[in-house]
Computed example of a mutant assay.
Amino acid sequence: MKNIFEHINDILSNWDPLDVGEDLAQDEYQKYIPSIVKRLNNKRDLALYLECILTKELNTGYNKDNDKHRKELDRIIHEMLSF
Rank of each mutant, 00 (worst) to 15 (best):
L46M: 00
E79V: 00
E79Y: 04
K38P: 04
E79F: 05
R70V: 09
V37L: 08
L40C: 07
S82T: 13
V37G: 04
F83I: 12
Q26I: 11
G61Q: 00
I8G: 00
G61E: 01
L58E: 13
N59Q: 08
K2C: 03
Y32F: 14
I11C: 09
L40G: 07
S35Y: 06
E28H: 02
G61W: 01
A47D: 12
L46R: 02
D10M: 04
N63I: 09
K68T: 13
L40Q: 08
I33T: 00
K56M: 06
E22G: 02
K71D: 07
F83R: 12
K68D: 10
T60Q: 04
P34H: 04
I76H: 10
I36F: 08
N41P: 04
Q26E: 15
H78N: 13
K71T: 01
N63V: 09
I8P: 00
I77V: 11
M1I: 13
L81P: 02
N63R: 12
I53Y: 05
D16S: 09
V20A: 12
D10P: 03
M1V: 14
L46W: 01
K38L: 15
R75L: 07
L18C: 02
N14S: 15
D74I: 02
R75S: 10
R70P: 06
N3D: 15
M1G: 15
E22R: 09
I33P: 00
